[in-house]
Amino acid sequence: MKNLAEFQYPESVEAALALLAASPGEARPLAGGTSLVFAADPRTRVLVDLSRVGLRSITLAADGLHLGAMATARAVGRARAVADAGLAGLAEAAAACGSRLLQNQITVGGNVVGLYPWSDLPPVLLALGAVARLRSAAGAREMSVEDLVARHPRRQLKPGELMVEIVVPPAPRHGGSAFLTFGRTAVDYTLCDVAVALELGGDAIKAARVVVGGLRLFPGRLCAAESTLVGEQPVEAVFAAAAAAAMAEVQVANDFRASREYRRELCGVLVRRVLQVAAQRAAGRTA
C-alpha cells in the first residue's frame, strides 16, 4: 500500500459504494484489515473504511440466516441466531478462524472475498449452499458462494462492487452440518479442512454436500464422496466409503508443511469424522 494517501469513513453502504465508484482501481474497501495490512498493492490510494456502514447484523429470517459482511467471526461464532438456525458447522468454522483475538477483527466479508487457502468460512458456506449479495453504485446481484469461490472472489467482483451480505438457506428439518480443520498447532496454517451438510430422509441420507479446503487455492466440493452417501444409511461403513472416494478424487497441491500423501490421508480422516458429527446432529434434529 505504498501509495495509500487517505482513509474515507462513509456512514452508509450507499456512501461507501459512491466512494468506490468515484475512484475506480484506486479505492479499496477495508473491513477488519488483518490481511490488507500486508497487501502489496501499489494501486490503492484510498481505503474506504466500512466500520461505520452497518452490515454487522446476524439475523434469522424465513429465507435463511443473514450474515452482514461486517459481522465478525467472533460474533458469528457466538450468535444465538446461528445456533437457532441449527447451523453448528458454521459456528465451528467461525470459532476456528485465527485466534479468539483475531476473531474480533476478521469479518464475514473479508474472510470470503479475501479468500486464502486457509480461510475457514468459505468451505462451510459452500457446503451450506449460501448465497452472496453484491452491491455497487449501479445495482445489486446475487452469486452462490460455490460460484464465487470457483475463481478468486476478488476477481469475481466488478470494479466498485461490494459484498454486503451472505444468506444461508434454512437448514432442513432433518439436517446437520459440521466443520473440522487440522494444522500442526491450533494457530498454524490449515493443512486440510472439511465441511459437510447432510439431510436425512427416513433412515437414509437424502442429500449431502462435502467440501474440502486448504488443499488447493480454492475450496471445492467432493462430488464422488457426495454420491457415495446419497441413498445410503448414515453408518460407519458408508462414511468410510465416502472417505475413500474423497481420497481418490481430491486434488492436493504441494506444500512444504506436509507431503501430498499425508494431506490426502488427512482429508479422508477428516471426511469420516466430520460425517459422523454431522449425521449425529441431523439425527438429533429428527428426534
Partner: peptide
C-alpha cells in the same frame, strides 16, 4: 494488524 486510520 490494524491500520492506524481504522481507529479514527
Amino acid at each position: 494488524v490494524v491500520f492506524a486510520g481504522q481507529v479514527e
